Computed example of a mutant assay.
Amino acid sequence: MKLRRFLIGACTVLFLLGSAFPGLADEKILSRWSKTNHYENDIGSELWVTASYYASEYVEALVQSEAQKNLWTADESEQYKYELLKTLNLSEYIPIFIAFDNRGPSLHMAPFNDQLTLWVGKKKLQPVDYDKRFNFKLQGKREGFVYFPRYDEKGKPILEGVKSVRFTINGGISPVTMGKSIEYIWDVADDHPEKLYAGKAAARLELDRLIKRLDKLNEEKKNLEGELDKVNAELQEIQKRVDELQRQ
């Protein structure tokens, strides 16, 4: 009974701390989706590899954290969110941010997309795009995005009904991780990225998309009009010749 009261009291304190200091709650969310693995060998070489999965709550927590840190206004926060969502392109891809801090032998990772796998259940996904700087020999720090497909070849959401995903990096990229597992697991069952697309940032993203669509349609219209002009010109030539032949 005493233990139960203690646990309830501890949870209450944590809840109150999270309410009084939003930054604590944000940090908890950030650490849930951004994970760092540390590796070292017997001669003092070390490697830190961080992988961040951009779940909806992670994006919101990241925006709030940056806003608090930089004392942003509401408009500045919306601008940051807009730029972030534009980079992530969550409507098409599953983005993962990777950061290396290598304090040992050079990393050799080219071609980088061959070193990465996102396991969604039994499905093995390869990146559709990634930061090409990862293809170069690395000593020190480097970070960037990799993008996995969000939909299969039939247009069905790959994450539909999925509880967790597992992201792996080939341990052969470094002598420090040779024979070791570089992997990260995230629980995505309650992730709903569509919730992010509300407010000013979402409206601007939709505007960007519609403007691009208008440009594409206008270009198609221009091309079709050009083709139609050619067809009309040919029709006139044919009709002219038909009229000449009929008069003979």
Results as ranks from 00 to 15, higher is better:
95 P>R: 05
95 P>T: 08
95 P>D: 04
95 P>G: 04
104 G>F: 12
105 P>M: 03
105 P>L: 02
105 P>H: 02
107 L>P: 04
109 M>L: 12
110 A>V: 10
111 P>R: 10
112 F>Y: 09
114 D>I: 09
115 Q>Y: 07
117 T>S: 11
117 T>H: 01
119 W>H: 12
119 W>C: 04
120 V>N: 14
121 G>K: 09
122 K>Q: 15
123 K>I: 15
123 K>Q: 15
124 K>R: 12
127 P>Y: 11
132 K>E: 12
137 K>Q: 13
138 L>T: 07
140 G>A: 11
140 G>Y: 01
141 K>S: 09
142 R>M: 00
143 E>V: 00
145 F>Q: 01
145 F>E: 05
148 F>T: 10
148 F>A: 06
148 F>R: 00
148 F>P: 00
149 P>I: 06
151 Y>P: 14
151 Y>N: 09
151 Y>W: 10
152 D>P: 05
153 E>M: 03
153 E>N: 00
155 G>M: 06
155 G>R: 04
156 K>S: 05
157 P>F: 02
158 I>F: 04
158 I>A: 03
158 I>P: 04
160 E>R: 11
161 G>C: 04
163 K>G: 10
163 K>V: 05
165 V>M: 00
165 V>S: 06
166 R>M: 09
166 R>F: 11
167 F>K: 10
167 F>S: 06
168 T>V: 14
170 N>A: 13
171 G>D: 10
172 G>Q: 05
174 S>N: 06
174 S>H: 08
177 T>W: 03
177 T>M: 10
181 S>M: 10
181 S>H: 14
183 E>A: 04
186 W>R: 07
186 W>Y: 02
187 D>L: 15
188 V>C: 00
189 A>Q: 07
190 D>R: 05
191 D>G: 13
191 D>R: 00
191 D>N: 07
192 H>P: 09
193 P>L: 01
196 L>S: 10
196 L>M: 03
202 A>G: 09
205 L>S: 07
205 L>P: 12
206 E>C: 06
206 E>L: 09
208 D>K: 12
209 R>W: 07
209 R>V: 13
209 R>I: 02
209 R>P: 07
210 L>Y: 03
212 K>F: 12
212 K>V: 08
213 R>A: 07
213 R>D: 00
215 D>M: 05
216 K>T: 02
220 E>L: 00
220 E>Q: 05
220 E>T: 05
220 E>N: 01
221 K>I: 02
222 K>C: 05
223 N>V: 15
223 N>Y: 15
224 L>S: 09
225 E>L: 14
227 E>C: 13
229 D>N: 14
230 K>N: 01
231 V>M: 10
231 V>N: 00
233 A>F: 01
236 Q>M: 04
238 I>V: 02
